[in-house]
Write a protein that binds this DNA or RNA. Sequence first.
DNA 1: TTGAAAGCGGTACCAA
DNA 2: TTGGTACCGCTTTCAA
Lengths: 333, 333
Amino acid sequence: MPSVREIAESVNVSIGSVSRVLNNQPHVSPELRAKVLKAVNELRDDSAMGSPGVTTSIAFAYRGQSFLSPYDAALLHGIAEGLAPTEHDLMVVNTARGRGLGGSLGQTLIRRGVAGVVFRAATKDHGLFSELATERFPTVVIAERIESEHIGCVHFDAELAIAQALSHLVQQGHRKIAIALNAIDDYDHAQRFAAYQHFLAKHDLPTDDRWIIRSPGWDSNGGSALRKLMALPDRPTAIFMTDPGLGSGLCIEALRMGVRIPQDLSVIGFDDSEGRYDTFPRLSSVCQHVGLLGETALQHLLDVIARRSAPREIKLECSFEPLDSTAAPFSDL
Amino acid sequence: MPSVREIAESVNVSIGSVSRVLNNQPHVSPELRAKVLKAVNELRDDSAMGSPGVTTSIAFAYRGQSFLSPYDAALLHGIAEGLAPTEHDLMVVNTARGRGLGGSLGQTLIRRGVAGVVFRAATKDHGLFSELATERFPTVVIAERIESEHIGCVHFDAELAIAQALSHLVQQGHRKIAIALNAIDDYDHAQRFAAYQHFLAKHDLPTDDRWIIRSPGWDSNGGSALRKLMALPDRPTAIFMTDPGLGSGLCIEALRMGVRIPQDLSVIGFDDSEGRYDTFPRLSSVCQHVGLLGETALQHLLDVIARRSAPREIKLECSFEPLDSTAAPFSDL
DNA sequence: TTGAAAGCGGTACCAA
DNA sequence: TTGGTACCGCTTTCAA
C-alpha cells in the first residue's frame, strides 16, 4: 500500500484530501476522488511487489444468494488451488450486501487490504465493472465477456463443442433435437442456446418452440423437463441439457419413468467437472472444467496485479465427450 | 482493535513489548507473549462492540487440500448465509500454508483483522486448538468434540439416528449388515463406525471383518465397495454407506451391474443435504443438515465474540429418513 | 472543497 | 529480554 504522501504527490493534492478519499468521507469532489483512486491502484503494486512477504488478500466477489452451487464450489476450489503457493488470503465478498457507509466497491476492497478481485458475474453487473475499471482496481470477471481494456475476463467458449455434440446426434440419425435451458439467462446459458439455434439453422433441422424447455437449473427440474418432453405429441428423439443439474435430474427421472437412455431418448449433458461419470447412463457431455476456469482467472489476476500482463480476454475451449447416452433414434430402426 | 497503550496498561508492560508481540518479532519471552495475546483478545471486543459499524472478518479455517468437497461447500454456504445480515466479511484460510514468518495462528488472524474463526477440523488439529485456547482467540470448531472451556464446538450426533436406521433393517429381517467407511478417520466417521459396532453387539447380530469396507470417500469407490460386497461368499443382505459420495457411487454401480436395490440388496445411505432425492432408488438415509451446522457454528461464534455466550459444545441430532432403498432381504422370502 | 498543522497511534532504535 | 523515546504515517480539525 503506497503512503498518503506518495499518492498526494502523484496527483498534486494534500495528504488530507487523499485520506478523505480513502476513508470515503464526504466533502470530496468526484473528480478528485476518481483521480486519487486511480493513482492508488497504479501506485500500490509497484511498491508491493518490491518487498517480498507482503501478504494481502485476493477477493472472490459474487452477487446475491447464488453462492455455492456446485459451480461456485468448483470455481472457489480452482482459486484456492492457485492461491496455495502464494502468500495471499482469500476473501469472499457478497457485493449485494451494504458495504459499510457506501463508497465504491474498489474503495472498500482497498481499505480491507485486497490486492485484486475475481468477480463471478451472475446477472448484469456492468455498473460495478465500469466503476472498478475507472478506478483501475485489478479485476478479472469470470464467465462473461467484458469490453473494457482495464478489466480482464475469462470465459468458456462452448460454440464449437456444442456443434460437435449436435453433429454427433445428427450423424446417428437424429433430426428433432430439444433443448433444456437453465432459467438463469446469464452469458454462458445465452451462448449455449445461441449455439443450438445456430446449429439447427445451419443444418436445416426442424425447430419447435415446445422443444425449448426452460426451468431453474436444479436437479429435480431435469425430471420435469423429461416429463414435459415425453408428453409432446411428436416428440424429439434427443435432448440437449445445457446445465449439469438438469442432466443428472433427467437421468434419475428416466429411471423412475422407465424411459431408457439412449434407446428411447438420446441425451447430451453438460458437465462442469467430472459429474458425467456419476450418472446412469454416463451422459455424453459438453464439458468445461470450471476448476481450471477459476485457476486461470486467478493466474491472470495475479499477472495483472504484478503488471506482468495487461487485462485481457481469455477464452477457454469446451470439449465434447461422447459416452453412453447417445445412440441412433428408436423410431429410425 | 485496542491500542497498544491500552494493552500495555492492562498487562503492565511497555508499548514496545506489545508491538513486538503483535508483529511476531523475536526477543519476547513466551510468558509475556501469552499474556499479551490473551489480553488482546479479552480487550478487543469490549471496545469493538461498543462502536457500531466496525467491520472485521470472520475466518473459515481448514487444513490441507480437503477444501471444497460438497461437504465444505454446504458448510460455507451456511456460514455465508449467517454472515449476510452482519457487517463481517468472510476470509478463507488454509492453516497448512506457511503463515508469513511463523507466529501463532491467532496472532496472524489478529493482524488481519479477523474477529473469530470457524475451524473445520479434518485431522487432529489439537495443537492449534490449544494454542488458540490459551490466546483466548474466539474459535468454534466444527465436527469434532473439543474439551477446552475456551473453544466452542458444534457437531452432529449420529448415534441415535444410526440405531434407528439399523433397527429399520433388522425389523425388515436383515441380520447380516455390512458397512462402507470413508478411509478418512475423522471424528464423524469414527462415531459412525462405533455406532454401527455398538448396535450390532447390542442386538447380537453377526459380525465379519470382511463386511467392513474402507475406501476413500469418492463416488467411484461406492462402486468398488459394491463389487467387493457382491464377491463375498456368504454376503450381507444390507449395507450402510457412511458417506454421501459412497452411497451415490454404489447406486450407479448397482445399475451397471444389474444389482437391484432393494430387492437384491438393501442400502442405507448418509446424506449431508438433499442428495438422497437425487439417486435411483432414493436412498433411505441417515441425514445431517451440513448447512445448518455451518450456520449454527457461525451464530455461536458471533455470540462468543460479542460475549453473549461462553464457548460451549453444541450437539445437533441426525435423523433417519426411510426411502426406497430398504426392503426385506431376498434370501428370506 | 481544499490545504496546513496538530494529534494520535505504531514501530524501531537504543540503553539497561 | 525489556522499557523509554524518537520517529513516521494517518486522521482530524481548523482556517481559508
